[in-house]
Design a protein around this nucleic acid. Structure first.
Lengths: 237, 237
DNA sequence: CGCGTGATTGAAAAGCATCAACCCAAGTGG
DNA sequence: CCACTTGGGTTGATGCTTTTCAATCACGCG
């Protein structure tokens, strides 16, 4: 049997999936579309007919303020469901953009009703994943609200390590993170200049290095300690 | 017929409820408990057997960092469901405390399974309310990440006005907000001193006044404009 | 080679935190 | 009835964190 894609692997993090559900997921996610970097998947105010599931690459939820400032409030990594909520909420209240080139499955949005009507186990797994997304959002608010730049970035790196590890995208204490410093700035609510200086600080402290789109963390335990990271909010088994 | 309680009124904001659902809700929410101010309803790490619905008063979701700093990331106002997620996630990843004396319904947590199994319309209404909570959380992240102290507080006041208005708790541009400045500080990710100065600023600008636990907004449109407030994320009808 | 995007660095200023006092009003107990 | 206490609000002074502005650097690409 072939290894399951990131979406299936992620949902199995909640609990075992029935063979039928699993096979069905395989079939509907077998033909992803390829998106370029910096493409909006959906835009604030849209009422779209399709939903998106990440299979490869990085995307982000964001909003622009009236003054043109951007806040990214979620990274979408392989396995993540991008827009489950449009099954219930009519209009989208935020936009989603790709950060890198991505493989993404597009599904007719009525598929959600199909799932909730006919696949109770899968519904529960999706509910779980959406609650974990919300828990991550809460933690980001704590992170941005309460931590200074250094531990703030360090905390994000710890989270990404855990999340990417769950879908097999880490190599020991190292993982791909092909973002620009501006994207990181819009995530961490800091200026690009300060991001740059803070990364230098982390590098000189030997906590984490970011070179050519790859993060290297020499001592994971030390970084967790430094940033006050506690993974329980990710609700991994 | 008596006027419905805040919970029912809020759920009707999603769409009309069947008479049966409504009657059932009336019956299970007819005997709230009274909680004093500053009492934890649930604590991080708990695996509780009961869930809570706010009928009167104010409560807050919060977390403490390792350094003892508190971040509040949601206000729970009358009508809000406090801990729907425990139906799926085993452990709570944050705590909830009352901010004022409260009337709160305590329900056995298995009631959620009962609802999802037998009351599809109500399930959908609860799903909607949980998605709106998430949308509010996203907006708070934007607010804290991107706005300076004055518009940040102003934005929160606009949101509270809309939310409290939806459950009949406003009087024109005025509403009860019986918090301390420290609680507001932990919400806005600012120090109490800076909250105090910023409130003074807003008062002197004629944007909003906070005296003896009541907010008075002379010109709602002006405050919305000032804070860049756009209520669409609240998904009111 | 020249161009553009992103990274880096320095200098100055803004925004906010912290520390420390002090005020004020509502209890509380003698 | 009043002195005392206490929790929260207010204000000033000072310093740190972060932003902004501006310049420079590095590198891939037509």
């Amino acid at each position: 049997m072939t290894t399951p894609n990131a979406f299936i692997r992620k949902l199995q993090g909640f609990g075992p999936l029935g063979a039928d559900d699993r096979q069905w997921l395989e079939s509907i996610t077998s033909t992803p579309n390829v998106f370029a970097a910096d493409e909006d998947l959906v835009r604030e105010g849209d009422n779209p007919e399709v939903v998106h599931v990440m299979l490869d690459g990085f995307a982000a939820r964001y909003k622009l303020t009236a003054e043109g400032r951007r806040q990214i409030f979620a990274y979408l990594v392989p396995g993540d469901f991008c827009d489950l909520h449009i099954a219930v909420l009519k209009r989208l209240d935020h936009s989603i953009t790709t950060l890198t080139s991505c493989k993404i499955v597009r599904l007719p949005s009525k598929i959600i009703r199909e799932i909730t009507a006919q696949r109770p186990e899968l519904t529960r797994a999706l509910w779980w994943s959406s609650l974990v997304d919300e828990a991550i959002l809460r933690e980001w608010l704590v992170n941005i609200g309460q931590r200074r730049a250094e531990p703030r970035i360090a905390h994000l790196l710890c989270e990404l390590h855990v999340r990417l590890n769950a879908v097999g995208l880490t190599d020991d204490g190292s993982f791909e993170l092909p973002f620009t410093q501006e994207e990181l700035a819009d995530t961490m609510a800091l200026s690009t200049v300060h991001i740059n200086r803070t990364l230098k600080e982390l590098r000189e402290e030997g906590l984490a290095t970011w070179r050519s789109g790859r993060i290297i963390i020499p001592d994971m335990e030390r970084l967790k300690e430094y940033s006050g990271f506690n993974p329980s909010y990710l609700h991994i088994r």
